Amino acid sequence: MQSKVIADSVLVSDYINGNEKSLEILIIRHKQRIFSFVLSKILDREIAEDIFQDTFIKVINTLKKGKYNEEGKFLPWVMRIAHNLVIDHFRRNKRIPTFRNTDEFDIFTVISDEVLNVEKQLIKDQILNDIRELIVELPEDQKEVLIMRMYKDMSFKEIAENTDVSINTALGRMRYALINLRKLIEKHNIILVN
């Protein structure tokens, strides 16, 4: 008996309306991806399990308070929560001691470069992930040119040949892709600073 896959948005809605089983289905469905992501950053199974649980505690609290509004994008939303908890973990474990008005205090003697780099890398990964999600929303011809140029490092001449258009058309599509991407970044309030 093949059961039809229920969309995440339907399961979220069912859970909000009191069906506890719906959340269990969502957790089982996305556990591997979310847990693997956390573990890849933390590299400690026990801590990763704690962060995974904390992620779903936050998810449950947000859903129960009726504050979930991610327009059907459940997994990216949960991944963002997990990501923020990973960053919180790094901040907590390399906690900066508080010194009151002393001239000798140098923040860089307290935080190692390695910690700063891990955090910067996490932030950079999140930015790249956010942008990848936005690229999906672009019109097909613009998305194609953008991916060829940015991810496949192709020249506009190669793009034109591969897509059977003139170089000017390829350039125009790239220009519109960047304009639309900028609009999407503003619409989704994505901060692109490291």
Rank of each mutant, 00 (worst) to 15 (best):
I127V: 06
I179C: 10
D54Q: 10
L128N: 12
F37I: 08
R175W: 02
R91K: 15
T109I: 00
K152M: 14
I16G: 03
E114Q: 00
L39F: 12
V10S: 10
I34Q: 00
S13V: 04
R100Q: 10
L146G: 05
S9F: 07
L26M: 02
L63H: 14
T109P: 04
R45G: 04
M1Y: 09
V59E: 00
F56I: 11
I123S: 02
S13I: 01
V78I: 11
I27S: 00
K94N: 13
R132G: 13
D125S: 05
I147K: 04
K31S: 15
V5Y: 03
Q2H: 08
N69E: 14
K143S: 06
E49P: 05
E119H: 10
R92K: 15
K183W: 01
V59I: 14
Q32T: 15
R29N: 15
E133I: 11
G66A: 07
F52K: 05
K157E: 14
I190C: 08
G66D: 09
S40I: 07
E24D: 13
N180K: 12
Q53W: 10
N180P: 05
S3I: 07
A48V: 01
I131C: 03
E20T: 12
N129P: 00
I28G: 02
T62D: 01
E186R: 15
A160W: 08
I6D: 06
L43T: 08
I42R: 02
V118F: 09
N168D: 11
D54P: 02
N162S: 13
N84A: 08
R95A: 14
N129Q: 02
E137Y: 14
I167C: 05
D50L: 03
S112R: 03
V5S: 10
F99Q: 07
S3V: 06
L75S: 07
A82Y: 00
N194Q: 11
S166E: 10
Y176K: 15
F52Y: 04
E46C: 01
T169D: 06
D88C: 09
